[in-house]
Design a protein around this nucleic acid. Sequence first.
DNA 1: ATGGACAATGTTTTT
DNA 2: CATTGTCCAT
Length: 724
Amino acid sequence: MMDFLQKLNPQQQQAVTVGAGPVLVLAGPGSGKTRVLTARIAYLISHHRVYPYNILAVTFTNKAAREMETRVMSLLGPRARGLTLGTFHSTCARILRQEADHLPFTSNFVIFDSDDQIDIVRQALADLNLDEKRYRPTAIQAYISAAKNELIFPQDYPIQTYRDEVIKNVYARYQEILLAINGLDFDDLLLWAVWLFDEHPEVCAKYSRRFEQVLVDEFQDTNMAQYTLLKQLTSFHRNIFVVGDIDQSIYRWRGADYRNVLRFEKDYPEAQIILLEQNYRSTQSILDVAMAVIDHNPHRKPKRLFTQRGRGIRVVLHHAMDDRQEAAFVVDTIADLVARGEARPGDFAIMYRTNAQSRLLEEAFLHAGMPYKLVGAQRFYGRREVKDILAYLRLVRNPEDELSLTRAINVPPRGIGEKTLATLKVCARRASMSPGNLLLELSRGDTSPFWQQFPTRAATVLQQFGALLVHWRAHLNELPPLSLMDLILQDIQYRDYLEDGSDEGRERWENIMELRRLAAEYTERGLDAFLEDVALVSDQDTLDDSASVPTLLTLHAAKGLEFPIVFIVGLNDRVLPHVRSFDDPEAMQEERRLFYVGITRAKDRLYLVVPLNRHAYGFYEPLEESRFISDIPSSLLEYSGVEQVEAFRLAASAPADWQKNRVTSTPPLQPQFQPGARVLHPIWGEGMVLNSKIQDDDEIVDIFFEDVGLKRVAASLARLKLKV
DNA sequence: ATGGACAATGTTTTT
DNA sequence: CATTGTCCAT
């Protein structure tokens, strides 16, 4: 029964059985890191008599957590009961609910998603009389989120410019609003957990003693808050076992910092470091392409990936005339391989850089009458109809939730417009109560002392809505989430509202049916659990492994997954690597890692697809091949598709005429940016030109930015705008 | 208060 | 192009 150790290779065995103290496992793609993590947990329980209760394992997605749980269970059976296994966010949520006495909110707080966050920023801007045009809510939200990831509270927000001061004020107001409605955003879950452990060492000690063994998956994607949290939790015993791979770090924009891996080595000098290089997933042909790509990133510890699976089929590089032909190629190839019995539909995955790219692919699948599935929680939970119904549920659960109230109160339209809503809020503030509670009060009709304060029409509609709320709240504790949802749907006649006869309306109602299906699973666990899980789902969590049809997903969503046959599409400069990463070397390296992650998902076959033109923003425009393609020796590739391109590639060493023809806009030879001119940069904001010179057919501009200081940029890449 | 017509505007990745 | 915001008539 302990034979799980025998099935491991020597490095894996070493990782699983290494003694106590800090351990860093550097695990290449497909090297069996989940297997190591689960075997380690099983080993601790079976060989070292560690109680499952004393083990904490954290992952980044619920799917990964569930998979680990299943695997540990299959190794140990019921002996593994009592493990704490979850995502960073869900684990923190649990701790915060448990310890709410020490925190400035109560244990039934609601978790707000990124759309809600934008709404709150809007509210904060309005409260401070700031213009949304000048301070874009999404930008402000990004600053707030970045600050939270760095554990910076509003009062400590560093100020260098006037803009910083504004952000600080908005951030402060933002937090006030959240606390007033008893809500936390994603980042707060981590931030408050760290704060709790900092302010209350006895609480920290409690958890640190309880979790005597801490294991972490995807360690390269931790941010400062998560790293600090781990340090706090393990300060007591230093039993921290982390698994990661810097080459697969792709969440920098979300605050993740792969340098946490280096920090770990420094903070735990006694750490055992174990390298897993043997790959059990891909053929050598695929691994060679992967290494060729990633080796172009500087400052890497070289890692040699090898496999015993043999060479396999050569990686295909296909050039398509445009993005439509690209989609057609994908669908045709799949149909062909399936027809020839070489693969089953469920073997395929199609990966792309941006969600927008899925549309043409979906159309091609639809056109061919071929079923497919699309990974993406955002897409579902971001739908208006889904958010509406969730807002109703949140409001019923917590009438103080002004955000959900604002969302729900006039959907479907019931005559409560902006004016009435504003009066309601003012009135509530004057009586120092929440608008939701005022609404409950107004349900009593003209016996309510507040009745007089509204025009008769407004008072009537508000009373009706208040009465609905009272009615739903009466059933809050007796009805399971699904029944409560059905009650609401019926009372507001949501179906009639959505189904207007259009395809879109029907689709919206189908989304509601899907939401019902999800709610049905919470009959035992209740509404709070439903609302929490819904807030914390990851894209991967929506992936249904059982459906045996091709999968469409972003490269980001693909991390940690594997498929027999993979297509990576849209391999163009400005797509992958994405435009927004051109003037930042770190971002550019991350794009390369993203490509690497995609390549290493493939087990047997890999298709790299390059469209030469695309339909974008109403125009048909030429595209350049991704610069990453030229990192791959042509001996590793099988060329397919548009023939001239192959000739182009072969002739590329000699600067031929075609290059001139393919470049659409020739760079200006006269400097466009004069010293003293004001310019606008998409990321760095406003700045002043200090100097500019022509070099290599491009304009090199030195700019002093208000926010980030002196930068040197290439005009052709940086998308500068002259300010007038 | 509501819904339609038109203009502007923006285009990454997601717990 | 597709979404979102703004203005205007009902």
